[in-house]
Design a protein around this nucleic acid. Structure first.
Lengths: 307, 307
DNA sequence: ATATATACTGATTATGTAGTCATATATCTT
DNA sequence: AAGATATATGACTACATAATCAGTATATAT
């Protein structure tokens, strides 16, 4: 007969949830809220209670903050999954919206995902979407520990995640007609002659454009460094500069005021966009599996038709 | 930012564990122990508290006993896995023995598994073995809901379980020398002339032997119907009758007093023995995965060498 | 050295949960 | 209808956990 799985005193949902919160936020005070002294103290107590019952240190001081021991990390990972599964169960039996967490780059979220979500929603399942703007490495990490259900990235590969290609998404140069009355003979000509807006971080698009200018001994008029693709789009919409954006951004602009031109010779070919997920997460919920299929279909259609 | 997974009052480890216990035993009183009125009442309370917090009925009366609703079953399945994972975690951090639950037929447990377990144990991991004598269908069911970690069966196939062949295990007729001084020309001759012991249930071995006798118009002297293979072996060891047992049972007998002969033409060829497991169970624990490899190696070696 | 941020400790209260009892209700058996 | 079996309910106690407060300890920054 199998051993009775019997629980020690000292191990409660709440305490385990605290461990997960602290693991996610990286410290007790971050998890508790910086000013809430009472909660901070409570969390410290709860972690200690857990350590006593498991008979093993789960946290250790690292400088003046905290980090989890390997055992603590394992337990947090375990419980993150369990608590998520339970809260999904609670959602489903309540007929409340089923929460789906998806991470991608900002422009992908804005111009690919959001415009097409209406087609994904199924009548039998109301979905609450949680968007996270993240870089590929963070998406990878959060998919692994199940803080995300889906990610959309360019060609990420890893043993423990699954992925499916959605299609390719080209970057094009968007030019306000106010700055240049008609299409130039090449994108490079426009880049050389027009005020330019680029993303500030070391994105590949930016590097490629800078390299191309270097090759041709052109000096671009980089007047706007933007933090987000939305800002960049706004700069273009206000006729301040030309700038590179995914072709789907075209939907943002008035066609009579902004036109776009390919960056063929300038940018290296991008890897195709992929939907990525953790099979462990999907195994817990048939709804998520259904959603995955729907997402793949809708998004790859959108990329094919560039709608 | 992902929705905070926040837990309702009314949902505690203990209550969820009660749900699992009731699901396993099939009724409140069975889970509580037949005479313990206090626990019976407590369990009823706990289930009701859960239903209130989830806002959904988890049990329903079926006659005068209880059965879980579909939602209740889903929750029980979920929690069975979670509680198991937690207790395994607790075991491991405590350096206590890691519990492994394995199900198989009685003779397989006695003559294949038990004699070879010493070779499976690894120095880095003390294992506490829980044996369950079960039929193939029960093994299947318990692997699915993770009440078992491993099963050993003959050719079971299912989408949600994985399996690996270990090898073949022939049944042979064991004959006390006291009843028959030398090997007969065929097993059928022995069956026709000697007192016979068989298992009582409708096993394939028994059916095949009976059919063979029918074909040859022989009437076997079936004097012993045994409940277990061990009983059958005991009958043979006491010179009461001859009987069919897996060839590994040879280790049980004194070679000078019992000999065995193949049942080639009489029994249909058995499907090979397989180790079966639920990938979800193994994904939770690297120790189990290590153990699986070790088990496969040791048992298939044992079957090959018939040691 | 001082200030600040973070975490730990001990004591205390409020609340939630486990555990028990007596009894009621529902279902099945005879 | 009466008895047996299984579960449900309400009231209560004992206990465990959550929540709060005041104060201490430790590392980092200035």
């Amino acid at each position: 007969m199998p051993k009775e799985v019997l629980f020690q005193k000292g191990v409660s949902m709440n305490r385990l949830q605290t461990l997960v919160r602290v693991a996610d936020k990286g410290s007790i005070s971050a998890a508790a809220g910086q000013d809430d002294l009472a909660r901070q103290s409570q969390f410290s107590h709860q972690l200690k209670d857990l350590e006593i019952s498991f008979g093993r240190k789960l946290t250790e001081r690292r400088g003046r903050t905290l980090r989890l021991t390997p055992a603590g990390n394992r337990l947090a990972t375990l419980m993150r999954e369990h608590l998520l599964a339970l809260s999904r169960f609670a959602d489903e039996v309540n007929d409340e919206a089923f929460t789906v967490r998806i991470g991608a780059g900002e422009s992908t979220l804005n111009w690919l995902l959001t415009p097409n979500l209406a087609k994904v929603d199924s009548p039998s399942l109301r979905v609450r979407w949680c968007f996270s703007t993240l870089h590929a490495e963070d998406i990878h990490e959060r998919l692994l520990d199940q803080r995300l259900d889906f990610g959309i990235v360019r060609g990420l590969q890893t043993a423990r995640l699954k992925l499916e290609k959605l299609g390719t998404l080209e970057n094009r140069l968007f030019i306000p007609l106010a700055l240049m009355p008609g299409p130039p003979s090449s994108a490079l000509e426009a880049i050389a002659s027009l005020p330019l807006a680029l993303l500030e971080d070391g994105s590949r698009t930016r590097r490629d454009i800078e390299n191309a200018c270097l090759r041709e001994s052109l000096k671009p008029h980089l007047l706007y460094e933007c933090n987000t693709a939305t800002q960049l789009a706004s700069v273009i919409a206000n006729n301040l500069a030309a700038g590179p954006l995914p072709e789907l951004a075209r939907a943002q602009f008035d066609r009579k005021k902004v036109f776009d031109i390919g960056l063929g010779g300038i940018l290296k070919k991008d890897a195709p966009l992929c939907l990525v997920w953790n099979p462990r997460t999907l195994a817990m919920s048939s709804s998520l599996e259904t959603l995955r299929q729907s997402l793949t279909k809708v998004l790859s259609t959108a990329l094919r038709t560039k709608a």
